[in-house]
Design a protein around this nucleic acid. Structure first.
Lengths: 189, 189
DNA sequence: AGAAGTAGTTACCAAATGGTAAAAAGTAAT
DNA sequence: ATTACTTTTTACCATTTGGTAACTACTTCT
């Protein structure tokens, strides 16, 4: 069975000769829903590639409530990029939004890999940048819309996600209270 | 008088030997408030470096109202990145939020420059990526906050901007109606 | 200076959303 | 199966925000 990370990278570029190198840098891990992959105010030492499941990037606001900035699912890289690059503490937290399997790559090993195979750095950077732009686009699409519309857009863009992560997470992601989101769902039926 | 673009790049890396090359690729332009630098549904053929003033990236929603996604000011590059890279029509529009002076660099000339001086591609990519991450951070900081708080955060992060661009633009950027924003301002005094 | 146009303010009411609380449904543990 | 626990739903009222409209302040043009 081919590894999801390798399979994913091959969609962009043939990495066959370096499969071993890449796999040697990565470590497979599993997390249960709710488990924390990165605590807030800590320096991210690794980047995750999601093989299965959904991660969320969140933080706790002044009122103690969780704010969900992003969901990331299969075939996406996940880290707090600025903090990972500059090795500074991240304010955000990375949490399993449902049970997940990831490949964890430590920064040290990643940069060793980059040093050995510069094209991999280019490759991953371009993948990550593309995804960043997508995330911005998605956020933009919510702007200036009311709660019901934001939910409708979300359901068009990510229909399966609603089945996989708790309602409260989606509510937080869409800046709606869980009660309001529940009401919106009711009105749609 | 040194050019703002060169001065800016020098903050990150010494580009002295290539100043001539860079300047040859750029063309200075001025726009008045409200002038459109890029129409929606057109392919961005150039990237702008802002020497002076503020640009906004907007689009028109289903109800005919403007939504302001971003403000960009002095010492920032501005284009619709995905569309610029892939030479596809952008849904967004680039408009002068106040009178501006920019250096416009055509994609063709930029890529010629990149071919001649690969380090410039790396340099600009890293600058652009850093700014993207910043924009995401700023948007995140508004998430889950009420209108008055969003305005307060905005005024902390960008105090001068409020003096330079119309209130309606800021309202749209913060997803508030101009009337509500006016009321919020009143309550703050 | 006066007129016309644009931008910002204010007031009012309507609609959307938040917050509290309790019930219902679903999940996990014994 | 029963219990305990968590998540989701529902109802209610309070608060925030939006939309319409009129007014004021500012610009710009002649």
């Amino acid at each position: 069975m081919p590894d999801p990370l390798i399979t994913f990278l091959k969609k962009f570029r043939d990495v066959s000769p370096d499969e071993g190198l890449i796999m040697a840098a990565a470590e497979q891990r599993s997390y249960k829903e709710g488990e924390v992959l990165l605590k807030e105010n800590t320096i991210p030492r690794e980047i995750f590639f999601i093989c299965n499941g959904v991660l969320k990037i969140t933080s706790v606001n002044d009122k103690g409530a969780d704010v969900t900035y992003f969901f990331l699912k299969e075939n996406q890289f996940c880290t707090i990029l600025q903090s990972f690059q500059n090795q500074q503490p991240a304010h955000e937290r990375i949490v399993a939004a449902c049970d997940v399997e990831v490949m964890a790559i430590s920064r040290v090993k990643l940069y060793e890999l980059y040093a050995q195979r510069p094209y991999i750095e280019e490759l991953i950077n371009s993948i990550v940048q593309r995804r960043l732009l997508e995330k911005i686009q998605i956020r933009n699409s919510y702007m200036g819309q009311d709660a019901a519309t934001r939910y409708r857009i979300f359901m068009e863009q990510e229909p399966e996600l609603a089945l996989r992560v708790p309602l409260a997470d989606i509510a937080s992601y869409l800046c709606i209270t869980p009660q309001s989101l529940s009401r919106i769902r009711k009105n749609i039926r």
